[in-house]
Nucleic acid binder design. Structure first.
Lengths: 194, 194
DNA sequence: GTCTATACGTCGATAGAC
DNA sequence: GTCTATCGACGTATAGAC
């Protein structure tokens, strides 16, 4: 007898369906009744599994934020070359986006709907992620692997260029995650010029 | 006596303030009363200048979409090299973003709140813009100026990498539009590797 | 744990005086 | 053209029967 199991699954089902709806219609454009319909229960019943609509958004955003920060710190602590570290970071972004596209999209676009307190926490986690990423770029420049340039410009260009996948990638695309990583690494490391 | 003049100005003031609010809090997170407060009138009074909240969003989104498509078609019709065309497109994106940051941000993020009919129209304009841009990349590859690669990947990587400026740029940043263009062109054309 | 019924606030938008 | 007052719809969330 595993009574808790059912509760966990319903809860995750709510988060999954909410992620998809938030991605398509935005947090403000999605109602509790919309989510409930997808889950297969009445809106009121969902409150047995989650505390509020705000909590749903928080769980989605921080799950993704944690995934990124955990994996980045693992990469940063290896002995690989900076170029390899960058390639691995690119791979993490692509894999997370392909594996959990809806949630990543929500974290990237709807975090501004977080309650003030949680919004500040989210921004702080993101800033810390950016600092760690910037450190890899900075050290890579010092070591001579990367061109010396404005670190912020390089950082945000890379971060931003990785975000389009969330809008574009579908399993039906005739390109694999590996090919995507390969092409993106080439563009960012060597540019599109011959 | 220029009675229409006043009306036009109030209308544009509403659009300006709405752009800023939509950018910060999202379309769904912004109320007519919020906009009215910034404009300096009651919510009801705004309906003398605009038809509805939806119309505000439409005017913002299509103003930006038109600006992009107009300028792209001018660039595409010149005789410059493909590398120069790409540099000019990058410049257009940066200039528009710096000149009209809030509206660009709204067009990029809140277009999904457009009414269905307008949303389809917006998506169609954007798709046509992407096709023209892709054509420049494709011809540049054929001519040997650019590496031969997946055109969609190159296109969206470039488009997406230009979007972070909307989140980051402030007039107080100690980097000029020209430097930004220079650095971004370098990264996208030649990569960050030495 | 799920339902029906509903409380209660906020939303966009309108009516009508001035 | 701006205001006050208010409508009606819809939002999240709760109460209480089963």
């Amino acid at each position: 007898m595993v009574p808790l199991r059912t509760k966990v699954n319903k809860r995750e089902l709510i988060l999954t369906e909410a992620s998809k709806l938030f991605k398509d219609r935005g947090f403000g454009g999605t109602g509790m009744r919309d989510i409930a319909e997808k889950v297969g229960m009445e809106a009121a019943s969902m409150y047995n599994h989650i505390k509020s609509k705000d909590e749903i958004l928080e769980l989605i955003c921080f799950k993704i934020a944690d995934a990124y920060t955990t994996q980045l710190s693992e990469i940063a602590n290896t002995e690989a070359s900076f170029q390899d570290k960058l390639k691995q970071i690119i791979k993490v972004h692509i894999d997370l986006m392909i594996h959990d596209a809806a949630a990543v999209s929500v974290a990237n676009n709807d975090w501004k709907y977080l309650r003030d307190e949680k919004k500040e926490e989210y921004k702080s986690i993101r800033k810390s992620y950016e600092r760690s990423f910037a450190f890899v770029l900075e050290e890579g420049m010092k070591s001579g692997e990367f061109k010396t340039m404005n670190v912020s410009v390089a950082l945000f260009t890379i971060l931003s260029s990785l975000r389009w996948i969330e809008l574009w990638y579908k399993p039906s695309r005739d390109i694999s995650a590996e090919e995507l990583e390969e092409e993106l690494s080439t563009i960012l490391l060597n540019g599109i010029n011959i």
